[in-house]
Design a protein around this nucleic acid. Structure first.
Lengths: 352, 352
DNA sequence: ATTAGCACTCCATTAAAACGAGTGCTAATA
DNA sequence: TATTAGCACTCGTTTTAATGGAGTGCTAAT
């Protein structure tokens, strides 16, 4: 049996109706809903076929049909092709984000937080955004400054402008000359160096050259190590977790608790980020339906992610998490627009 | 009618039983539960009295009694007096936190996050911790460094060692001499100055002295302004929001959704912090029962907060949020211990 | 190939009944 | 006088039964 045009139309109608109502759809509904002018009996036959194809499911005898994961998948894939062009309509919603981005470019964290929030408000789903991950880990700049007599401030900058500060307390005050020497020592040896290449031998050589100030070197190196470590556990910002309560199929205690935990812990969400960075299909948009998602606590959800890229090879992920019956159309459009805005805006602006 | 010893004992028994079960407590239960050796009939009479005193409530005719807010209040106040000494038992739980604190003193954020988490795990309630607020806002250190030809790094340190970095992109490269001059200009004029005293007149004078580099001064001043702004919206770390699902009386969709939102937004939680800083009763521990809490979405919860103080007058708040039938005893002990550890450890360690 | 018609299934809703925990009151008791 | 046993009564909860209705699958007619 083949999936002809008409079957496809009916499947689409079923899914769209189910997305709205969350209730199983019956044949009579479709018979009226579509412009096919077919009786409910005909629809029933077709639905029977669709079920055999595994695209829709009957939760129990004498109930309407709901889409299966496979059905959603077909629908989404279909849509991704068709709607390639139509994303303009969602643009207006992203406009405000664009303004937000241009407004204050420095505070990445706050921007991402707000973006997650806005996205959650607009879509009525839970959202997450991962900060761009730095790929190149070259040290760009190291400096020791005296803040008080016995307090030194370490400032470390790595490629991608990730900055790290640490306070170091010393026993004896340092004179200006020594401080300058230490700074020169650090910079001539470490500047431009990929962090991975800093090994024990190099550290001990540095310490040797620093003489009695080897303790300071040690602390600086610790701080450098911190930068990498921080980089490993990706920063993720979430918002709109409460939105899951809007969808009864997710709102029972068991599920809700699990999902809330997932959002709060954030640890598990990194898998989502990794997944969407890996599974790149060219479009930069990923759709995980039900069990397809890499995070098991979300098996009753669907997840749409977009990978955006800033200059210098910094990649981040935006994710929208909702029920299976998510408004894929809107979500994908929104993400596509947002992604393209991010991709371009930053590139433009960073040069300036 | 008076609240004699026996009535108090019965009240206590009722509350303790209700804390465990979450179900209304009947007279028969108390008759067996206590060592008073009274029949259920006698208990009933006493309970009738307690109800008249407004200490317990009957949810409906022919149900057992549950404590009223007033009843809880009496219980808690009573306990705070009696158990002044017994807090040693909770100490062991705090030991691990102590170790955590000593381990890495630099990363306040990560410590607080972990502390919130640990507290949530131990108590099975939701928790929040606010980072210590800096009181003195004197500028301690300002520095411009060249990271790349056209990229300058601003480092600002204010009293209390809050550090802020900003990247500034300039059109024309700066020579070393100019950079040094700018640094001297900034430091001689601003060092040690309370941030509030920086006014327009001063800024324009600085700009004038900077000549064609007034744009850089402007950006630096913006960064300084940022430091204050950040300080205003207090950082709050939460954990264990999912714990509310463990208490049926909080876990219905309506309430759960509100609470989750409150935790996620964090904005509302600042009222809790402010409240507990204000309402100080000498002990540093605050107990808000039901409607007493400053956050309206928590009217069905009880909140226990502790105010801790680090050196340099930096104060922060730890809060535990759970159902009305919270294990006040344990929670208060834990918080008291934690508070005292924080109060002392930091003081000791900061000096060293 | 499509459709009308009908019997059948099964969930959801409602109604009624049984249950049980707990109270308040009264009369008996120490 | 304080305590207690006993009992009728209340009221929420759970169980069971009854009803309604949406939807299907099948068959026969178009």
């Amino acid at each position: 049996m083949d999936l002809d045009e008409r079957k496809l139309k009916i499947l689409k109608a079923i899914i769209q109706n189910y997305l709205e109502t969350g209730e199983p759809v019956g044949s009579r509904t479709i018979s009226k809903y579509t412009d096919l002018n077919l009786s409910s009996a005909t629809i029933r036959n077709e639905m029977s076929d669709l079920e055999e194809l595994g695209l829709i499911i009957q939760p129990h005898t004498s109930a309407g049909r709901i889409p299966s994961d496979k059905g959603y998948r077909l629908y989404v894939d279909q849509m991704m092709l068709e709607k390639e062009e139509q994303l303009n309509q969602a643009t207006k919603e992203v406009k405000e984000m664009r303004e937000l981005l241009l407004e204050r470019e420095d505070k990445m964290e706050s921007i991402l937080k707000q973006m997650a929030k806005m996205l959650a408000t607009n879509t009525n789903y839970a959202t997450m955004i991962s900060a761009p991950q730095v790929r190149g880990n070259k040290l760009k700049f190291i400096q020791l400054s005296r803040v008080e007599a016995t307090q030194l401030l370490t400032t470390i900058v790595v490629e991608g402008n990730v900055i790290k500060n640490t306070m170091i307390t010393i026993d004896e005050p340092l004179d200006d000359e020594t401080l300058l020497k230490l700074n020169i020592l650090l910079n001539t040896n470490l500047n431009g160096l990929p962090v991975e290449e800093i090994n024990l031998a190099m550290i001990s050589r540095l310490k040797q050259q620093a003489g009695i100030y080897d303790g300071i070197i040690a602390e600086v190196m610790d701080a450098v190590a911190e930068v990498i470590k921080e980089d490993e556990n990706i920063e993720i910002y979430t918002s709109g977790a409460n939105n899951i309560f809007k969808y009864p199929e997710l709102a029972d205690n068991q599920r809700a608790s699990e999902l809330i935990t997932t959002f709060e812990e954030k640890q598990l969400l990194t898998e989502l980020v990794q997944g969407s960075l890996t599974d790149d299909n060219g479009t930069g948009i990923q759709v995980y339906i039900g069990n397809e998602t890499p995070v098991k606590t979300m098996k009753d959800c669907s997840v749409v992610t977009a990978t955006y890229e800033l200059e210098e090879g910094m990649k981040g992920t935006i994710g929208i998490i909702g029920p299976r019956r998510m408004d894929y159309d809107k979500v994908i459009s929104t993400l596509k627009t947002l992604k393209s805005q991010l991709d371009t805006i930053y590139k433009k602006d960073d040069k300036g």
